[in-house]
Each structure stands twice: as structure tokens, then as C-alpha cells.
């Protein structure tokens, strides 16, 4: 049971972060290899504010998220003007430099040993509630004019501009929302684990998230959530296979890109219209089969 609750909490925290990646990569088509750095900012800032200043957790969460958004804005200024592949490079450099900074700023962050003594206040109900809230927010965002504009910009930036969409602004909004969500995941993480070390916030973490989004379906929030749940829960249950995780990931990515380039669920979402359509399809198939036999 303890293992299950541990896994559940960690999956929920990952889900919050993956919501952010979905907004960035799934909706807007920007590939970031530095998203984990915003999780680091959230984790360290919230931890430090509570430890050093003694402020209540809620306040430190809000301040940490704000800080990540401000940093995100500064990084975002060049990022939103760039082409896809260059965005990955800029964010990769930024992410790695944040990880280095955390190691070098010994006096504040505890360096490579990590930051210890954060109160372990986040239990599974908080994590679960946070995941549900984040998913709902992102679902609302996707259905709004902002979500539409994000998809339009991803699909054809020139045509989007010709329809009066300020693509830089839309990309910035998506980028900042993504920063806020990943930072929130970081806050949850540090107050769940009780300590943070800079090692886990490298580009591998960001790449993990991107893989999760692609695995489930890059155009579908349901798919991204599904992918994140499976890919973050499985390694926890199969500890012995943990070291081979990246081998499994690599094989999976190759298979998915080749056979299901839109991910397992494609564009399917857990909405009444999509469910109805699926039912219709199954029914039609069933009818056809029974007619043939």
C-alpha cells in the first residue's frame, strides 16, 4: 500500500508537469529540453522561501511559481521568435545552466548535496487534487480561443498571422503557462520528498516528459495524461528494470514514430463528442461483421 501511494503521488506530480509540456509541445509545437529547469526553480524557490523566511507553504508556492514565470518571460523573449529546432537548443542551454547554477550556489542551495529539511507537507490527496486541477485548467485552455490559436500557430504560423493572430504573444502565453505548471510540479515535489538535489533536473527529465506526451498522443490531452501515467508508473513497479528504462523508451519511441506518428490516442479526447463517435465506429464495425457472417 505504501508503495502504491508513493507511486500515485509521484505520478500525480509528473502529471502536473506533463500538463505544462502538453501546452508547450502538444498545443503550440515548441520543443523544450529545459522545462525541468522550471521545475527546479519551483522546487528550490518554494523550499528556500519556507526554510529561510518561514513563510507559509501556500505563499511560498505562489512566490515560487511567480518567480518561474518571471524567469520564463526573460527566456521566452528570444524563444518565441525562434524556429522549432532552435527553441530546443536555447532551452537545453538554459536548463543545463540552471542545473549548474544550483550546484555552484553552495551557500544557498546546498550544492550537489541538495537542499535538505523541507517540511514534508504534501501528501497524496494534495498531489491528486493538484493533478486534477491542472488537467482541468489545461482542458479549459485547450477549448478556449487561446488553445485554438496555439494549434493554429503550430499548424501554420504564416496563415495564423494572416488571420490576425499575434503568434509571438500566443507562444509566450503558452510558454508562461507551461513554466507555471512545471514550477508548480516542482513545488509539490520538494514538499513531498523533503529534499531536492540538482541531479534530477537535467535535460533527461525534460526529454522524459516530451516522450510521455508523444507516447500518448501529442495532439490529445487525454493521450498525454495517459502516456504520462503509464510511463511514470511502470518503472516504479518494475524496479529491477529501472536501469534499462531508456532502452525501453528508445524502442518505444522508434516504434511509435514509425507506426503511430500521432501517438497512441492520436487526436482522441475524453469528451462526449469523441466518445459518441467511437461508439458509432465500433457499432458500424460490429454490424458489418455480423452481416458478412
Amino acid at each position: 500500500m505504501a508503495l502504491f501511494i508513493n507511486v500515485l503521488t509521484q505520478v500525480c506530480i509528473t502529471l502536473v508537469a506533463v500538463c505544462g509540456i502538453y501546452v508547450l509541445t502538444g498545443l503550440t509545437g515548441m520543443f523544450s529540453l529545459g522545462s525541468a529547469a522550471f521545475m527546479a526553480i519551483g522546487a528550490y524557490a518554494s523550499g528556500l522561501i519556507t526554510i529561510k523566511l518561514g513563510l507559509p507553504i501556500i505563499v511560498s508556492f505562489i512566490l515560487a511559481i511567480l518567480m518561474a514565470v518571471v524567469v520564463g518571460f526573460v527566456i521566452g523573449l528570444p524563444v518565441v521568435k525562434l524556429r522549432r529546432d532552435y527553441i530546443s537548443l536555447v532551452t537545453l542551454g538554459f536548463g543545463e545552466s540552471i542545473a549548474q547554477l544550483l550546484i555552484q550556489m553552495n551557500y544557498l542551495t546546498g550544492g550537489a548535496n541538495g537542499l535538505l529539511g523541507i517540511p514534508r507537507k504534501v501528501k497524496w490527496p494534495i498531489a491528486l487534487a493538484s493533478a486534477i486541477v491542472s488537467i482541468t485548467l489545461v482542458a479549459m485552455f485547450k477549448r478556449s480561443k487561446y488553445g485554438r490559436q496555439c494549434i493554429a500557430v503550430k499548424s501554420d504560423e504564416l496563415a495564423a498571422e494572416a488571420m490576425g493572430i499575434d503568434s509571438s504573444r500566443i507562444k509566450m502565453i503558452a510558454f508562461l503557462l507551461s513554466c507555471a505548471l512545471t514550477a508548480f510540479a516542482g513545488c509539490l515535489y520538494s514538499f513531498y520528498m523533503g529534499y531536492v538535489d540538482p541531479g534530477i533536473f537535467g535535460w533527461k527529465k525534460s526529454a522524459d516528459w516530451v516522450i510521455m506526451v508523444f507516447f500518448g498522443g501529442v495532439n490529445s490531452l487525454t493521450g498525454s495524461i495517459f502516456g504520462a501515467t503509464i510511463l511514470s508508473a511502470l518503472p516504479q513497479f518494475m524496479r529491477s528494470l529501472r536501469d534499462y528504462r531508456y532502452v525501453v523508451y528508445a524502442v518505444m519511441v522508434v516504434l511509435i514514430i514509425n507506426f503511430k506518428p500521432n501517438g497512441l490516442l492520436g487526436e482522441w479526447e475524453l469528451t462526449p463528442t469523441h466518445i459518441k463517435e467511437t461508439f458509432k465506429k465500433i457499432k458500424n464495425k460490429f454490424n458489418r461483421n455480423s452481416k458478412e457472417s
Binding site: 485554438r148 494549434i151 493554429a152 503550430k154 501554420d156 496563415a159 495564423a160 488571420m163
Partner: peptide
């Protein structure tokens, strides 16, 4: 046209 959106969403954009 925007390929990720339906006809309606394309026009709404």
C-alpha cells in the same frame, strides 16, 4: 487551413 482544427475552429480562429 489549420490541419489540427475542425472547419468550425478554423473559422473561429
Amino acid at each position: 487551413l489549420f490541419s489540427g482544427l475542425t472547419v468550425e475552429e478554423n473559422i473561429l480562429c
